[in-house]
Design a protein around this nucleic acid. Structure first.
Length: 767
DNA sequence: ATAGGGTTAG
């Protein structure tokens, strides 16, 4: 069809095509040309022609405005026009308007048929309002559509979506809002045909026609809710089952089921955490001669990711390959995620490499997989590749990549991403905000973290935990505890991780009684079984306070098997309090469960060195060598003008090496005048005092600090990150340095933050 | 004509 055919007779042909063979019109352009053609010769097309054109328009994207204009020319829109309008609204994401139009259609006396219900039900699923959904279900039943295949499939999907939308903080709408939306012709739309009369909308009639409450009652008798009074604590579980019970009821009443029906139930169960039900439906579907397709497989793969079941996951992967589904982006994404959750990144990367086409979600999968497995640099590389490939990042992309910045302490990257997030208007997404809070906190910028936290609209458990952990990590224990109390007052239930944060705060401030109080609160009131991290925080606290026996008994009486890292916290306590006997006993425990624990070797060596037991130091060194263990060199890094500078003790390759040494020497003189006495006790080498002092002042954090002093202007805070713990002497030394240079120095080591200012550190004696 | 799938934060 071309625009050159302009005679009246050919217009008649076009109209016949429109009415009888609309499927021959395959493009938006053709549809618009047809519209223009009709206008040229027929100033007043019949309602059936307009409806047919409207139906055609609703097949294409970005024609909503044209559809609305066309619709407005109709004084009494026939069913086809209504259905097309509703379809247009839904396909353009105007779900509220879609349902409202359905209500208006009913108010105008037109009857819905089996074609329109699936679309309306889909809109309702997106709106996430249960009451509205039940009303629509009532309408389905009263119009005799409760045996229609497509309608039932849409109904099941709708019920299964209510929970997951609510859980994700998706916007919730109510039937009330649908009514508010009904007088939707707010002017500004002018007709192509001119001379449109404004029609009155009878809102009362609309209200009568849907009768939400009455329908809800009707639905209650048809779909009785399970009265599962198993307990208040499992309220969430029960709620979840109520929706899935409705899905099952629809499923069981269906006279005929197709693959979509099965897939809808399986996906619904999987998405609502009912994994066993989903898997039993998968088996049952085979008994009913239904062969799983790519939809089925991509729905069940997340279950094996959650179960960390690589065997079953690989079975599905094999099935996908045998059936030619392995090029499917949906299956690819869930496969990458499954392998990543099973810590099999090689397999995950291979799936990614073999995927012929990638969309935003498959990029997210590989990025999240890398970051979750500690491959932060690779994650960032994929993120850049994604941008290069012109794939627009989604909110999920940012919450996946931000932890990489937090882990690497690359504040400049995190800030850059934050800028991108603000420009994309994603900054009120609670997932992203939580990851930003964590990133800023982990980069030592607790004020910005708090600023972002304060601007989150509704805090959830994770965002509370992020800020509490942020304060705890940064040494602001009392803020952390106060925030925890605020969280309780707001009625947000703390979880396992929240208590790790609270106990970390206590350990940072030496609040032993408080810590026990929270430990008991967690176990007794919240019924959370303490994990390794909780025990570690408590043992750390007791150890630092010198209550070594108490810590030893705590770890010995744990209800789970302690790992080397739990014992290691106590070993560190033994070092601080110079208890050689207990240190040996604890180290023995560690070597029993973890013979290659580097930390244990290093700390025990420190303990021996402090006691001048050089033979034991040598024995340990020989033992390490025999096992092929090499001490990981201490490394510190600092960000200066968006570039990360890394320093290793004794490394003289840095261009500023000489200037750094001069600065350190000048500083040392000033420090000694202020009263600094080097603590050479932990120097592992049996050398003279002067050499020990020289070794101490070449520790990597001091090189990084000196570099920071040289290359930034006066008053700028210095942020240092170290891969291992800051030693006792450096801790003392940095206090002096902060006073002398009048700067805030923030040092993050693998376990906590130290904010030095004016000769003091936030962690006080509990370094 | 109309219905079904994958990825995030502490």
């Amino acid at each position: 069809m071309t625009s050159s055919s302009s005679s009246s007779s050919s217009t008649q042909e076009l109209l016949n095509t429109l009415l009888n063979n609309p499927s021959t019109i395959k493009s938006k352009l053709q549809a618009k040309q047809l519209h223009a053609q009709i206008l040229k010769t027929r100033p007043n097309p019949s309602p059936s022609h307009i409806s047919a054109l409207l139906s055609l328009y609703s097949n294409f994207a970005n024609l909503l405005r044209d559809s609305l204009l066309l619709f407005q020319t109709l004084h009494s829109p026939p069913p086809l026009a209504w259905k097309s309008l509703i379809r247009s609204y839904t396909s353009h994401g105007f779900f509220l308007q879609s349902v409202a139009s359905f209500v208006r259609m009913r108010a105008s006396g037109r009857y819905p048929d089996h074609n329109v219900f699936p679309t309306v039900l889909k809109s309702c699923a997106m709106l996430g309002d249960l009451t509205l959904g039940e009303s629509l279900h009532g309408s389905v039943v009263r119009h005799g559509m409760d045996s229609d295949l497509y309608t039932c499939n849409a109904l099941m999907n709708m019920y299964s979506k209510f929970r997951s939308l609510g859980k994700n903080g998706g916007e919730r709408f109510s039937a009330r809002q649908v009514f508010d939306e009904i007088p939707e012709w707010k002017g500004g739309v002018e007709s192509y045909f001119g001379g449109v009369e404004k029609r009155e909308v009878n809102a009362d009639a609309s209200r009568d026609s849907i009768e939400s409450s009455e329908m809800s009652k009707e639905m209650e008798t048809r779909l009785p809710r399970t009265s599962n009074a198993s307990g208040i604590s499992k309220r969430k579980e029960v709620e979840r089952h109520v929706q899935m019970d409705s899905v099952r009821k629809v499923f069981d009443m269906m006279p005929y089921r197709d693959l979509v029906s099965w897939n809808t139930v399986i996906a619904g169960s999987a998405q609502n955490g009912m994994y066993e039900e989903a898997l039993s439906m998968l088996r049952e579907m085979g008994n009913n001669n239904m062969k799983p397709d790519s939809y089925t497989l991509s729905s069940v793969l997340p279950i094996f990711a959650e179960y960390v079941d690589i065997i079953k996951g690989k079975e599905i992967h094999g099935h996908a390959i045998r059936n030619g589904f392995d090029a499917d982006v949906f299956i690819g994404s869930s496969l990458m995620d499954m392998y990543a959750k099973c810590t099999r990144m090689e397999d995950s990367l291979r799936v990614f490499d073999l995927l012929p086409r990638c969309d935003a979600i498959s990029w997210n999968s590989i990025i999240a997989g890398c970051v979750q497995n500690g491959m932060c640099d690779e994650g960032l590389r994929f993120f850049r590749q994604m941008l290069t490939a012109k794939i627009k990042p989604m909110p999920v992309t940012f919450s996946s990549i931000m932890p990489a910045c937090a882990h690497l302490t690359t504040l400049h990257l995190g800030k850059q991403l934050h800028g991108y997030i603000i420009r994309s208007r994603f900054d009120y997404n609670v997932y992203i905000a939580s990851s930003l809070v964590d990133m800023y906190a982990k980069c030592g910028n607790i004020r910005t973290a708090r600023w972002i936290f304060d601007r989150i609209e509704t805090h959830d458990m994770v965002s509370w935990t992020a800020i509490i952990m942020g304060c705890a990590f940064n040494g602001y224990a009392h803020d952390a505890i106060s925030l925890f109390e605020q969280m309780e007052a707001k009625g947000t239930k703390p979880c396992y991780v929240t208590f790790i944060a609270v106990l970390t705060a206590c350990s940072h401030a030496g609040l032993i009684d408080k810590a026990w109080e929270y430990f008991n609160l967690m176990t007794q009131r919240f019924g959370i079984a303490p994990g390794l991290e909780h025990y570690a925080a408590l043992a750390d606290l007791l150890g630092r306070a010198g209550r070594l026996e108490e810590a030893y008994n705590l770890i010995s009486d744990m209800h789970i098997e302690p790992t080397g890292s739990v014992w290691l916290t106590l070993l560190a306590g033994c070092r601080v309090h110079k208890n050689v006997e207990l240190a040996e006993k604890v180290a023995e425990k560690i070597f029993m469960v973890d013979p290659l624990n580097m930390g244990a070797y290093v700390i025990l060596s420190n303990v021996y060195a402090a006691a001048r037991r050089w033979k034991d130091v040598a024995r340990l060194r020989a033992s390490m060598k025999k096992k092929g263990m090499r001490k990981k060199p201490a490394c510190s890094w600092i960000e200066v003008r968006n570039k990360v500078h890394a320093f290793v003790a004794g490394d003289n390759s840095h261009p500023y090496y000489d200037r750094i040494n001069v600065t350190l020497k000048v500083l040392l003189e000033k420090m000694e005048r202020e009263g600094y006495v080097p603590d050479t006790n932990e120097v592992l080498h049996d050398v003279d005092e002067e050499q020990k002092k020289a070794l101490l002042s070449s520790h990597s954090e001091r090189l990084a600090i000196a570099f920071g002093i040289i290359s930034t202007s006066a008053g700028t805070p210095l942020r240092i990150t170290k891969n291992i713990r800051v030693c006792v002497d450096c801790h003392t030394a940095i206090k002096y340095i902060s006073k002398i240079v009048g700067r805030e120095i923030i040092v993050r080591d693998n376990s906590r933050f130290h904010h030095f200012n004016g000769g003091k550190c936030t962690c006080g004696d509990y370094w």
